[in-house]
Design a protein around this nucleic acid. Structure first.
Length: 887
RNA sequence: GGGCGGUUAGCUCAGUUGGUUAGAGCACCUGCCUUACAAGCAGGGGGUCGCAGGUUCGAGUCCUGCACCGCCCA
């Protein structure tokens, strides 16, 4: 026979395999093997069009590993593993975002230290870790250490975090190229951030200005619009009587009476009849008796409070606007530490009709925090002596009226933000909104509606990007200032570093043209002490990966990148700033696609968070269920969809792994003649497999891996194992039908081979395990992860079935038999002495092509068909079972 | 207040351009230790698709309004 002289398909030795698949044994073994084969390595010699580039998010090295990390990083890896099987040269780096406030905070807590930038470096400093069980109030006063010592400690804790993260990524089986590892505080990233600064500075996108800026008093640093969030807080309207210069009075409402000393104007709506007559005149404040201008503004809401309000420097963003537009005085009473600063009424800019009264009152709040000052001022307002005009009543009208209102906070802070004037660096973006939106539209967002969030944010942008921070563990500005004869910096006369100096620190590197001895001396130089906003560096992940401007610059091979995976809560920061940087540096988009993972919610549909104590540890999860099962869970969630944490799904994943293991063992232990796929049922099965391959490939190309998984899983479980395997079990061992047997075995192996590859991105360990038993040797691909992604072209040599519906017909027939057996309480393997199927003449005649497999899987000695009603189903079965011998 | 998303079985979710009787897994009930798999197999019950209108021969799907949940922004 033509089919038999080609050879014999040899079975694998099932007895050599463990009964159960043990992920804890197999996963480390496979990870080591992948490493050995180097299959995750990027090949810089291959051209751009063969390369798939990922702009991997560098996780914040915060010490806490979260199931959300596992979820979203798996999503990237699914896409990457698919692309690798498509033959793409993968660039998949990993960075650690260790620079910035979270690290500073951890260092402060772990070692109970604070940094003082002016303290000298102590090379022998040794500080101990605080016992984490110590209650905060039992801690001694923090040890004050130098900035350099502090940074050393930062490196110690982040190194530990990075080890923990790397361990998690490896356990999860991320196919990252570990040769492409970096940290946002390492030399390369610092040089890149400074290079970015120099380029933006040269192109005129960067400026420095003394201006009101949002300020966090606890961290004592400026913050950017993107880092701000509103929180609902209790507050109270205080109705306070002001006088007019003509002897009249009016009442304003304010939630911030403690800023009365910072009052520089009074405003009301231009159409407000009550106050129309006052515009252009002066008002007199109570307590301090300071004359301030009254002006009209469209921004005042006549319905709010009394319709007239006081403008302070600065209570909020509109105060800043009025201060600019109206050219008001600057009276800042709040210091950078959040305490009321000392001022003297009667001095220039602090004119008062009664300086003596003003100074007595003001002295009571100097050095106080905002809340203390508020209580004191409210008491002062109850005193008629503090009326705006001598002889008046108590300025406070009635009692404060409690309200709930939104207050702005730094997202990492605990005190409301203040607006303080300070010298800060900015990147000019307000004039580039249109271009930024255009960039956003050139990028494909997955899911698409996430692009709207980007546009929304960009359209509503109100401030340029404040990039300077008054912190320690960050990348320094590559800038010095010349000092004047008094030793004060001349901000207009800055010295910028040259590219070959990078990375550099202006606080320890000497400015070109000066000697280090001139640091801080009159006529000498001084370094810029600020550091960059961490986003200034992390918005450069594409450039860091591609080594922009360095030796070995690979921008032409890697940029724009293919995909940026990220979470949707940082569209306004990470995605936005990366697009902005890419626009300003290269005039191009940073990537073609953004894929956004959802969040993991706890079963109450709240975002899982550490503070709620509902966090499941990812390592525990991986140990209990295995990486494949955990990846299955992540893979079953659509992009962008927030997903409730459901442990059941891990169990389903684990079950799938077991099923793959057993199905693999079964298929590969079948032996028989080697031959072509000729049988009608087999051909029909292959035709359906080809459809599956096309559909999953399309889904993956659209980043819809969850659809690919769902379809593959359904096909595997129902078409392959439940039906096809059962239908051909007998034929694949038949002695009488070598051609049919060869066809069955070839089909079984083709089915398994293809399904393993379709599953490989999701469950990389079990699929490679099964692959290794036979297919690795047959194909020469030593790992399934570098095997070719299936294509329907692989089946081109298999003839199309006579009837595309043959496989479905056989499945329906066997289902009818099973139903009959179940109805009679018989086991599925129970032999039948007679089996009769009824259905339409058309179905029955089509069924004839595959009826032998149906008969065999029913374990019937004979099968008959009769035209007739099948009770709403395609077929109905009448059976007679063999009488079983009593035991 | 503006923008975006969601609401489908007890739970977690699919449902492609409108088209037979709305699907899956888990859970539940019944039967079966069947020569790959009891971590299995077979069968079954369970849904007014958030509410109210509209378009259409036909709506889970399109349109309008409303409610609730979530996120972003002000």
């Amino acid at each position: 026979m033509a089919t038999t002289d080609r050879g014999w398909v040899k079975p694998i030795d099932v007895s050599a395999l463990p009964n159960r698949f043990e992920p804890e044994e197999a996963e480390p073994r496979w990870r080591a093997h992948w490493d050995e084969l180097g299959i995750h390595r990027y090949d810089p010699s291959r051209p751009r069009e063969e390369t798939f580039v990922v702009d991997t998010p560098p996780p914040t090295a915060s010490g806490s590993l979260h199931v959300g990390h596992v979820f979203s990083y798996t999503h990237q890896d699914l896409i990457v593993r698919y692309q690798r099987m498509r033959g793409r040269n993968i660039f998949y780096p990993m960075g650690w975002d260790d620079n910035g406030l979270p690290t500073e905070r951890r260092v402060q807590n772990v070692f109970n230290v604070r940094s003082d930038p002016y303290m000298p470096f102590d090379p022998d400093l040794a500080v101990d870790r605080v016992d984490p069980k110590t209650k905060p109030r039992d801690l001694p006063r923090p040890t004050v250490i130098s900035r350099r010592n502090f940074i050393d400690l930062c490196h110690i804790v982040t190194a530990e975090d990075e080890v923990a993260f790397k361990g998690l990524w490896e356990m999860l089986g991320l196919s990252v190229d570990w040769n492409e590892e970096y940290a946002t505080i390492d030399h390369r990233s610092r040089a890149m951030a400074q290079r970015s600064f120099l380029d933006l500075y040269e192109k005129g996108h960067i400026y420095q200005v003394e201006a009101p800026t949002m300020w966090d008093v606890d961290f004592a640093t400026a913050v950017a619009q993107a880092e701000v969030e509103d929180r609902e807080r209790d507050g109270a309207f205080h109705d306070i009587e002001f006088a007019t210069e003509e002897g009249g009075s009016f009442v304003i409402s304010t939630t911030r009476p403690e800023l009365l000393a910072a009052c520089v104007g009074i405003a009301a709506h231009p159409d407000d009849e009550r106050y129309k007559g006052l515009f252009g005149k002066l008002a007199i404040s109570p307590i301090y008796r300071v004359p301030v201008p009254i002006f009209p503004t469209e921004l005042a809401d006549p319905e709010k409070g009394t319709g007239v309000l006081m403008v302070c420097t600065f209570g909020d963003q509109t105060d800043v606007q009025w201060w600019r537009e109206e050219g008001l005085a600057l009276r800042q009473v709040l210091g950078r530490d959040g305490l009321i600063v000392d001022r003297r009424y009667g001095d220039e800019g602090w004119e008062s009709n009664d300086p003596e009264l003003a100074n007595v009152n003001y002295a009571e709040i100097v050095g106080k925090r905002v809340n203390q000052a508020r209580r004191i001022v409210v008491e002062q307002l109850r005193d008629p002596a503090n009326s705006a005009m001598a002889g008046g009543d108590a300025p406070l009208q009635g009692e404060p009226r409690p309200i709930k209102h939104a207050v702005r906070f730094f997202e990492k802070g605990d005190s409301p933000l203040e607006y303080l004037t300070s010298r800060q660096w900015f990147v000019r973006l307000m004039d580039k909104k249109d271009e930024l939106i255009r960039m956003g539209r050139q990028i494909k967002w997955h899911p698409a509606h996430m692009g709207k969030r980007y546009e929304n944010w960009t359209e509503n942008l109100q401030l340029d990007w404040a990039i300077s921070r008054q912190r320690y563990f960050g990348v320094q500005f590559p800038v010095w200032y010349r000092l004047d004869d008094q030793g004060n910096p001349i901000y207009e006369s800055l010295i910028v570093a040259t590219p070959e100096m990078l990375p550099m620190d202006p606080m320890s590197d000497t400015a070109p043209g000066f000697a280090e001895s001139q640091r801080g001396q009159p006529g000498g130089f001084a370094g810029e002490p600020d550091v960059f906003d961490t986003w200034f560096t992390s918005s450069l992940t594409p450039q860091i990966g591609a080594r922009w401007g360095e030796d070995g610059d690979k921008m032409d091979r890697l940029f724009p990148m293919d995909v940026r995976p990220q979470a949707h809560d940082i569209i306004r920061t990470w995605a936005f700033y990366t697009i902005a940087k890419s626009l300003l540096h290269h005039g191009d988009v940073p990537w073609r696609n953004v894929v956004l993972s959802g969040w993991i919610l706890d079963p109450d549909r709240k975002k899982m968070s550490k503070s709620r104590g509902n966090v499941v540890t990812p390592t525990g999860m991986l140990e209990e269920y295995g990486a494949d099962a955990v990846r299955y869970w992540a893979g079953s969630a659509r992009l962008g969809a927030d997903t409730a944490f459901d442990e059941q799904v891990f169990k389903v994943g684990k079950r799938l792994v077991t099923k793959i293991y057993n199905a693999g063992k079964f298929v590969l232990s079948q032996e028989g003649p080697e031959g072509e796929i000729t049988n009608e049922l087999d051909r029909a099965f292959i035709a359906e497999l080809a459809v599956l391959v096309d559909r999953t490939t399309r889904a993956f190309d659209e980043f819809e891996y969850s659809r690919a998984l769902e379809e593959t899983e359904t096909f595997f479980w129902s078409a392959f194992t439940d039906n096809y395997l059962e239908l051909v079990k007998r034929r694949s061992r038949s002695e009488e039908d070598p051609e049919g047997r060869a066809s069955a075995i070839a089909t079984l192996r083709t089915g398994l081979n293809v399904l393993m590859r379709l599953f490989a991105p999701f469950v990389p360990t079990i699929t490679d395990e099964v692959w290794s038993w036979a297919f690795a040797g047959e194909t020469g691909h030593r790992s399934i992860h570098v095997a070719d992604w299936p294509s329907s072209a692989e089946f081109a040599t298999v003839p199309a079935p006579a009837d595309a519906g043959s496989f479905a017909l056989a499945c329906d027939a066997i289902t009818a038999v099973r139903k009959a057996k179940t109805d009679e309480g018989l086991g599925m393997g129970r032999p039948l002495t007679s089996l009769a199927l009824s259905g339409t003449a058309e179905d029955l005649s089509a069924l004839a092509r595959v009826i032998n497999d149906v008969r065999d899987s029913a374990n019937a000695s004979d099968i008959g068909v009769t035209e007739g009603d099948a009770g709403g189903e395609r077929f109905a079965a009448r059976i007679e079972a063999e009488v079983q011998a009593a035991d």
